[in-house]
Write a protein that binds this DNA or RNA. Structure first.
Lengths: 103, 103
DNA sequence: ATCATATGTCTAAGAACGTCGATATGTAAA
DNA sequence: TTTACATATCGACGTTCTTAGACATATGAT
């Protein structure tokens, strides 16, 4: 048994942690499942097909962005969001590596 | 843009969802990081090195077990928990496959 | 049978989270 | 400049989650 319970969790672990937390909400999962490959969507489009208000969608997008799952760019009045595929592959690749090496 | 927001989320997705939710808590992460490869730990051992009460540890172990991350076996008075490595590899393998194919 | 130990369950309090409407900010059009 | 629109933020409320102590259950020892 390791004696690491009280240690500070390493930063790359905390990055994974934010991803897990962000993905642990059903509405955020549903939002991510809306995206076609490489597609960019703005808040209004997502709010329209969802069952949530604009401000709630905006909140969930913020959580996903802060977790690194989404990236965003403002163009004119609109903010376009897209999935950071490469970053997700890195994060889950790290998770797989850890499982293979340490469990 | 897909029009799947209101659809029922498939069962294998809900399994991933439970895993994400379970891993989105720092104490549950710390508990998992205690295990040496292949090792089995009981509730008392975990509660002792943690900063939590026994009942709280028991609660977190239940969440991890219901997510499929841990398995358990009662031997005498004690319940031993271990990480279901193969299940985790399947789940995160599915996640990786989905990212590669659908993002 | 009685007692001690290990674990799970229940309950209640407090913390954290999700939600929406109102407001603020920024941008483009008239 | 005024107006309209897209998004973000704030404030308030209700819900869910986390937590610990009390209690219940199960097992083994005396």
């Amino acid at each position: 048994m390791k004696n690491n319970y009280r240690l500070t969790i390493p930063e790359h672990w905390r990055a994974m942690s934010r991803v897990f937390t962000a993905l642990g909400d059903e509405h955020r999962q549903r939002i991510l499942l809306l995206f076609d490959p490489g597609e960019r969507l703005n808040v209004g489009m997502i709010a329209e097909v969802s069952t949530l208000s604009r401000s709630t969608v905006s909140h969930h997008l913020k959580v996903l962005r802060e977790a690194g799952i989404l990236r965003s760019e403002k163009i004119g009045k609109e903010v376009w969001y897209w999935i950071d595929r490469n970053w997700l592959l890195i994060v889950f690749g790290n998770v797989m590596d850890h499982i293979r090496e340490s469990t």
